[in-house]
């Protein structure tokens, strides 16, 4: 059983998120499913009238566009993912530079895997 989610890449992300905002959706959170050297998989959750919608973003490398400009509340979760997975969110304000929970850029991101993320079945 998997979650039904629209698959997108980082170029389409901001437009897709802005579309959710235009529909009046509430931003719920971002989940980083896994990240390693090759890339990362993130889930964006939105709520409208108790129904959840999801976006599944796969990126290569560790650069992800930030959605702070659309939903300002995303700054907290994006900083958390920077801490835990060592990704970089471009355009993140305020950027804690991986000091939200941890000691900063010289600390190891504890959730980052050494091998690849699990491929979808």
């Amino acid at each position: 059983m998997t979650i039904e989610a629209d698959r997108i890449d980082s170029v389409e992300l901001c437009r897709a998120v802005a579309a959710f905002k235009a529909k009046g959706c509430r931003f719920v959170t971002i989940t980083c499913v896994g990240a390693d050297q090759r890339g990362a998989e993130l889930l964006y959750h939105f709520d409208r009238e108790l129904a959840l919608s999801h976006l599944r973003l796969t990126v290569a490398g560790d650069e992800v566009p930030s959605i702070c400009g659309i939903y300002s509340a995303a700054f907290l979760v994006e900083n958390e993912i920077q801490d835990q997975f060592g990704l970089r969110f471009n355009g993140l304000v305020p950027d804690y530079r991986r000091t939200l929970f941890l000691a900063g850029e010289d600390s190891l991101p504890p959730f980052r895997r050494k091998s690849g993320p699990d491929q979808e079945e």
Binding site: T29, C32, A73
Partner: peptide
């Protein structure tokens, strides 16, 4: 909100917990 990803083994692949205060802090 709990996100759970399991792979059929004893240990979960990923457990993510989005708690209510986490959503209220940006306010």
């Amino acid at each position: 909100l709990y996100y759970i990803k399991a792979n059929g083994g004893k240990f979960l692949d990923r457990l993510r917990i989005r708690t209510p205060t986490f959503a209220n802090i940006p306010a």
